[in-house]
Write a protein that binds this DNA or RNA. Structure first.
Length: 482
RNA sequence: GGCGCAUUCGUCUAGAGGCCUAGGACACAUCCCUCUCAAGGAUGAGAUCAGGGGUUCGAAUCCCCUAUGCGCUACCA
């Protein structure tokens, strides 16, 4: 299917790949793939001061991790390049000059001190802020330190139909004579964005809601250039639990942090898709393929959404459980290797690790959980520490527990095989024989052998731990009780 | 302050005039399963659809006002 749909994700390399940003990229990508159109990545590095080294790499890495590929952009090129704005400066200069020539823009020589002064005066007088258009009709020319400003119409209304919000309109009178070309020779977002979206033949501009207010500026610019504007769709933003814009103090906000914490890309994609989009009143689990099939802008919500970390955990756990054991093993292994601390067990025995991992498979909410103290340390660390009181069941006393453990230990010692089935066949009847509940016997052994009260199934755990280790640890528990 | 956008269970949402005594999911509670923890199953609590006016035989759904939240109001994007 061919389509004239061309959408773009236009990140500024000023920081890490924020989940809100990546979600915007994802919606654009889903839309492009759904329509059989093109998805373009364009780097908007026009703020020299805020550009940070390596930020772009992180953003692209975040995209790749989620499975988002791009048809044109950095690394892959394309017919409308370069896809980095700092390499397109000549284009912006030419276009800005044209605007000055035909009277739609003008040079402004006002120094920043003056701008600050008028802003201060406006705030003091409770006046609406904005440039006072001092240089608008002075017919000034270029000069070091000068900027080019757009000559905003003083009356009229600019309206457009947003695919998500419907009819939106603004009075031109409230709009500023905004800067098009900065004094350092770089364009502002407004200028570069409009020119590039046109030159790259972008059909739909899907961006965060914070851009809604500047859309009339863009529309006016398209008009001044004689361009046909694209269709706009302003996406709801993502908020933190306190309803404030999602930021670092809410915890992880970089998509790569989620990767490093052991979230699966397919779970993350599914979760992100549901932040501002819904298919129907019940379906929640979508593969990437299903997302592409079903994604439409009409079903994007217009309300800001709070990032619900609990639900992400739930979803991630579900995706982890649905992994085949081989797949789980392959994905969890690196987390096991880098997650366990030096003092616990080095070097790691691969065969042994492979026996441990299946036991935590259905219990893990994230891949990193496989290396947590509460889940697997006892498999690798012989110096397990715990309170002896944990050995004793609520309805039993120290003496009874001691006798029970001693009996069990003696029976275990003479066992030839030490697999789960054999252990269960021995221990379950033993509880009856001693006259305690199975849970009471198993509980004491569990604590003796793991130091914990919540673990994977006891017999499988003991099988992996092995006879020597189990007997040794039960022996120590007996010592604690004496 | 001005302008703009938004407002359904704590959270994510379904709902496009009668199907809604508002459905699903997360979280929560209780129960079942069970060697613990998970997982799974069942049940429950939880929203007078921000408030107030209209329009209509009938409104969560349409209109107006108010409130609240958020965004923009930079030579940042």
């Amino acid at each position: 299917m061919t389509s004239s749909v061309r959408v773009r994700y236009a990140p500024s390399p000023t920081g890490f790949p924020h989940v809100g940003n990546i979600r915007t990229a994802f919606f654009n990508w889903l839309f492009a793939r759904h329509c059989g159109g093109k998805f373009i990545v364009r780097v908007e590095d026009t703020d020299v001061a805020r550009t940070v080294q390596g930020a772009l790499e992180g953003i692209l890495e975040g995209l790749r991790w989620l499975g988002i590929d791009w048809d044109e952009g950095p690394e892959v090129g394309g017919d409308f390049g370069p896809y980095v704005q700092s390499k397109r400066l000549a284009i912006y200069h030419g276009m800005a000059n044209d605007l000055v020539q035909n009277g739609n823009a003008y040079y402004c020589h006002c120094p920043s001190e003056r701008l600050e002064a008028i802003r201060a005066a406006q705030t003091a007088a409770k006046q609406p802020p904005g440039y006072d258009r001092h240089c608008r009709d002075l017919g000034l020319g270029p000069e070091p330190g000068a900027v080019i400003r757009y000559k905003m119409p003083l009356s009229g209304r600019t309206a457009f139909n947003d695919l998500i919000r419907g009819e939106v309109s603004f009075d031109n009178a409230v709009l500023d004579d905004f800067v098009l070309l900065k004094s350092d020779g770089y364009p502002t977002y407004h200028l570069a964005n409009v020119i590039d979206d046109h030159l790259m033949q972008i059909s739909h501009v899907m961006r965060a809601e914070e851009w809604l207010s500047s859309t009339p500026k863009h529309l006016l610019l398209y008009n001044s250039f004689g361009y046909t504007p694209p269709t706009f769709a302003h996406l709801p933003i993502i908020l933190g639990p306190d309803r404030a814009k999602l930021s670092k103090r809410h915890g992880a906000v970089s998509i790569l942090e989620y990767r490093d914490k052991g979230y699966l890309p397919e779970a993350m994609a599914n979760f992100l898709a549901l932040l501002g989009w819904a298919y129907d009143d019940k379906t929640e689990i979508f593969s990437i393929k299903e997302l592409i099939e079903n994604f439409t802008i009409e079903r994007v919500s217009q309300t800001a959404a709070i990032f619900n970390a609990d639900k992400l955990d739930w979803m991630n756990g579900g995706y982890i459980r649905r992994l085949t054991s081989d797949d789980f093993l392959a994905r969890a292994l690196p987390f096991m290797k880098k997650g366990l601390p030096e003092e616990v067990a080095r070097p790691l025995d691969n065969d042994y690790v492979k026996k441990v991992l299946p036991l935590v498979h259905e219990r893990a909410k994230t891949l990193a959980d496989v290396a947590s103290m509460e889940s697997t340390w006892f498999f690798f660390n012989d110096n397990i520490e715990y309170d002896a009181a944990l050995l004793i069941d609520k309805k039993m006393d120290r003496r009874q527990t001691l006798d029970m453990l001693e009996t069990a230990c003696a029976r275990l010692e003479v066992l030839e095989a030490f697999d789960a089935a054999t252990l269960e066949a021995l221990l379950r009847p033993l509880a009856d024989e001693i006259g305690v509940k199975a849970g009471q016997l198993f509980g004491a052994i569990r604590t003796a052998v793991t130091g914990l009260t919540a673990t994977p199934p006891l017999f499988q755990t003991m099988e992996v731990l092995g006879k020597t280790t189990c007997l040794d640890r039960i022996g120590k528990a007996i010592g604690k009780l004496r």
